[in-house]
């Protein structure tokens, strides 16, 4: 009888789940009083990029987004409740796609910046769409979506660079390898 090999190994599933949990934990633990739209992107894109950068498989970011979305809903992180899932999922899918486009070389600061910025930007767009349809007043509606886009790109980009630096250090230390084994 043929044994069906799972797409993600047990190690990968555990790693991706921990990354997802880390996003929610960071969101709860870190309350930066910046009051600038998208500032949380500086830390919440980091676990996603690290997870995708280590596992290097299509679907890794989507998995992290799905799990963190469920956790965010259960912990009631904001007023969107179950719609949190769409926000986290969209960010995960975006980072997934860009990881694939960049050959999973997310340890490169430029790739990290773009991936983090795009992930945070897509999160903003989905958030904006949901807030608009659900009628919830949001900060970026007041300051304008153009300005909010710039702040999301900047903070997401900084988070992406941080993730790239962490991945780079892990590569140099030999904890992970550039080619998928």
């Amino acid at each position: 009888m043929a044994v069906i090999k799972p797409y993600f190994s047990l190690y990968e599933i555990a790693l991706l789940s921990l990354c997802a949990a880390l996003i929610v934990a960071l969101n709860i633990a870190l309350a930066i009083p910046l009051k600038i739209p998208g500032h949380t992107g500086i830390y919440w894109v980091v676990p996603v990029i690290i997870g995708v950068g280590i596992v290097k498989k299509p679907g890794a970011g989507t998995y992290i987004g799905f799990i963190s979305g469920i956790l965010a809903t259960l912990f009631g992180l904001n007023t969107l409740h179950i719609f949190n899932l769409l926000i986290y999922l969209s960010m995960g899918i975006t980072i997934d796609i860009l990881g694939f486009v960049f050959f999973y070389r997310l340890d490169h600061p430029a790739a990290g910046f773009i991936t983090g910025a795009a992930g945070n930007l897509v999160k903003m767009i989905v958030n904006y769409t949901l807030q608009t349809f659900l009628g919830i007043p949001a900060g970026f509606i007041l300051i304008g979506i153009g300005t909010a886009s710039i702040t999301h790109v900047i903070f997401g980009g900084i988070g992406g660079i941080l993730a790239a630096l962490v991945l780079s250090r892990l590569l140099k230390a030999g904890v992970i390898t550039r080619d998928r084994s």
Partner: peptide, 8 residues
């Protein structure tokens, strides 16, 4: 890789 980064 560099071209892809530039394009994106």
């Amino acid at each position: 890789f560099r071209a892809r980064v530039g394009l994106v």
